[in-house]
Amino acid sequence: MRKSLKKIAKVIAAVLGTVVIILCAYLGWLTVCDYQPLYKENLMIAHDAGKEKVDLAKTHSITTYNIGFGAYSQDFDFFMDGGTESKAKDRETVMKNIKGSVNELNKIDPDFAFVQEIDIDSSRSRKTDQRVLVAHGLDDEYTNCFAFNYKVPYIIYPFNDMHGKVSAGQGTYSKYKFETAERISLPTDQSWLARLFGLDRCMIVNRVKTTNNKELVLINLHMSAYDKGGEFRQKQLNMLEEILEDEYKKGNYVIAGGDWNHVIPTTDINKFAKTEERPDWYDYIPENFSPKGYRFEVDENVPTNRTAGIPYDKDVNFTAIIDGFIVSDNINVVAKNGSDLQFKYSDHNPTTIEFKLN
Rank of each mutant, 00 (worst) to 15 (best):
N288R: 10
S86L: 06
G229C: 08
V254C: 12
N103T: 09
G309E: 00
Y154V: 11
F159Y: 08
E92V: 07
L16R: 05
Q116M: 01
G17E: 03
L138D: 01
K209C: 04
D75H: 15
R278C: 09
Q170A: 02
V316M: 11
E300T: 15
V19H: 02
L138E: 03
Y176D: 04
I21H: 03
T128D: 00
D90Y: 10
R195D: 04
P110I: 02
N103F: 01
E287M: 12
A273S: 13
V134Q: 01
R131E: 03
A256G: 13
L218I: 08
I62L: 14
R126M: 08
N252T: 06
E117K: 00
Y253D: 14
P110N: 07
W29V: 04
D109E: 07
K10L: 12
A194D: 05
D347N: 13
A147G: 04
K7A: 12
T128E: 01
N144S: 15
D268N: 15
N106H: 11
N66C: 07
D347A: 07
D227Q: 12
E117G: 00
D283G: 09
V327N: 08
L138H: 01
F112T: 07
R201K: 15
H60C: 06
G68C: 09
S185T: 10
L23W: 11
P110L: 01
T304K: 03
T31C: 00
F112P: 01
T275W: 12
Y154R: 05
P350G: 12
P265L: 12
N337A: 15
E300C: 14
D81I: 01
N160M: 05
F112C: 11
N349M: 13
T211W: 00
D200S: 09
T267S: 11
L56W: 01
K89G: 05
A46P: 00
L218P: 08
A181Y: 03
I255C: 10
I8V: 14
C33G: 05
D121V: 00
Q190I: 12
Y312E: 07
R91H: 08
K40P: 07
S346E: 06
L237A: 08
A194E: 08
I62H: 05
Y154S: 09
K336R: 15
R295M: 10
N106E: 03
A273L: 12
L240V: 11
N317D: 08
G338K: 09
T304S: 12
D315Y: 12
Q342S: 15
P291H: 13
A335S: 15
Y345V: 09
V316C: 11
A308S: 15
K107H: 07
I8L: 13
